[in-house]
Design a protein around this nucleic acid. Structure first.
Lengths: 346, 346
DNA sequence: CTGAAAGCGCTAACAT
DNA sequence: ATGTTAGCGCTTTCAG
């Protein structure tokens, strides 16, 4: 049996190094060297011929072969809880683009509703990825165990994980603070916050920032109504706030859905926004669609995703993990839901 | 130089077939056979030992090696225009889950804003995927050329492509028809539609269904205002409709953003929804967040994504491509924006 | 400056 | 019932 590979016919589906080598009558190893590094000892005439042939044959290296040889796949995994949530969509966008500019392909998996994170775990067990970005709030301890065992680089995004310094976050405290300041600047002194579950660290940080700013402006502590970050959660939290003896005039809903729920509750209770109560919300996704359009705090989610990837590539290069807080300041997007409190027009 | 591989130490990062073979003192090929097919000629005692060892060593086959050998990667590519659009998020969800249940990993890339679809093209050129799902409205001819040349299976999702029978779609006509019927059932006779760009085939189909239902109910042809599927587009289309001599009492906005824009325009023009004009919109994503909450036509997007994957796997199995229309009927989600026309209470 | 050889982990046709 | 062999496409010493 000869070592010669059978002729694959006139139009090979995809050119390999061997095809190029044959075309220029050189060895595949030479071709490989030229096509990879740039600065190897090779006659420039030879180099030209090789490059030319590669071009003609539309050569692209086979990712599997390279991965097998190098133990590097050129791919990363991005794990999100829920793709139909635009917040994760925006984070994913940022990540995917950054990955592309680092020539990494992106596997995507949903981590919630995925029993034991099977899809994600397979990505690492089958060595499909060089690293993982975990953007889920849910407890993923099974997966994280697997990650530790496999010594695969990974980062968390938008959540701080105790005992693990590899979290990429945005300035949620700053966002909360900005919300408070915006209401205070409009003249409000009776503030309230619709918070999230205390188990969610972004929720805690937003609230902390809000409360700190109230304090530093010598206001009474704001009323607090917490609940799940859902439409219904925001609605019922808002109802509770409206029933308080001293009804707040400025309310911060610390999440998009909460904000929409809150608006809903206010309007249905017969109050006007912003005439009776001002409302400021978090994350900018649907805020412009309501009537009145909601003033909102916008976080640099796109950058968050991008940064997660660049931190991951740092790890791939051997750097030690670290926590990163995106310093880009949150912005307030002024729309129609914040005005001076009643009886105190601007 | 010996052919024996160097000892990798006590705790190999990831077990290979060779490790198992060593453990049970059999040949790797035997181990491979047992772990792959189930029904090969192997002593059941041997089989047990192998399975056991594989289990103990937590063996998972290396995807790159297998891909290289089999010319099958076990991965597919999902190309969407914009991940921050919840419509594509929902399609992606459905696709990813179905892929998982077919043991396929999912690469994700955005096709818009990606010069020449480079990321997507690399997926196919580098042989990273077994097939592609193209869920983008944009012209992707460069990519499609590449696909044809590479003879890689692919399907389009949510768009019919002329001269190509591999489109997975939902019943957009049915959705349009259902919108019309809903308004007609509420008593409306002066209908209008806010349509999309005529270059978008889903937009055309929604409109066709709407108009057909008007006709079959012996109504005058509805007023039509087309524009881009954006908030501003919907707003300005609606303004035009409101300025017409014979103002429509029932309006169908054939896209989510258009619907939001339309609501906006109506309210700002000083009309009430649904008292002065009823509004029904398309896609259910943000419709429940508005005040009043919008009645909407909900399409089976999740199923659309899932079906795209199952059609793709059919192609992978050698079946010829075909167009598929998801027969699951659109649903109307009744909320608060549709009521009988003014002067004709229920 | 270029080539020969070995091997990444896996599978499959062909022995034995 | 199990083993041998070859090779997928690539990179990387090491020799010439």
């Amino acid at each position: 049996m000869t070592r010669q590979r059978l002729d694959r016919g006139p139009s090979p589906v995809r050119a390999t190094l061997r095809d190029i080598a044959a075309a220029v009558e050189l060895d595949v190893s030479t071709v490989s060297k030229v096509l990879n590094g740039g600065d190897i000892a090779v006659r420039s005439e030879t180099r030209r011929r090789i490059i030319r042939a590669a071009d003609d044959l539309r050569y692209t290296p086979n990712a599997s072969a390279r991965a097998l040889k190098l133990s590097r796949t050129g791919a990363l995994g991005l794990l999100v809880p829920d793709l139909s949530n635009p917040v994760y969509g925006r984070i994913a966008r940022g990540a995917i683009r950054q990955a592309e500019s680092a020539s990494l392909a992106t596997f995507m998996a949903e981590l919630d509703e995925d029993a034991d994170g099977d899809a994600s775990r397979r990505l690492v067990l089958e060595s499909r990825v060089d690293g993982l970005i975990v953007a889920t709030a849910r407890d993923a301890s099974r997966l994280v165990d697997e990650l530790k065992r496999s010594s695969l680089p990974y980062v968390f995004v938008n959540r701080k994980v105790p005992g693990s310094s590899r979290s990429i976050t945005v300035r949620d405290e700053g966002g909360g603070a900005l919300a408070a300041q915006t209401l205070i600047d409009a003249g409000h002194r009776d503030l309230a916050i619709i918070g999230g579950p205390s188990s969610v660290d972004t929720a805690r940080r937003r609230r902390a920032g809000f409360e700190a700013t109230c304090a530093s402006n010598a206001l009474d502590a704001p009323a607090v109504a917490c609940g799940p970050y859902t439409l219904a959660g925001g609605r019922s939290a808002m109802r509770r706030l409206l029933e308080q003896p001293r009804r707040p005039t400025g309310v911060f809903a610390s999440n998009t859905l909460s904000g929409l729920g809150a608006l809903n509750a206010i309007l249905r209770a017969g109050y006007a926004v912003p005439d009776d109560v001002s409302l400021i919300t978090f994350d900018d996704d649907m805020a412009s669609f309501t009537v009145p359009a909601l003033t909102a705090i916008r976080m640099p989610l796109h950058e968050l995703g991008a940064r997660a990837v660049s931190e991951l590539t740092r790890l791939l290069d051997g750097a030690p993990p670290r926590d990163v807080e995106i310093v880009t300041a949150p912005e307030v997007v002024l729309r129609d839901s914040v005005a001076p409190p009643p009886g105190r027009p601007a």
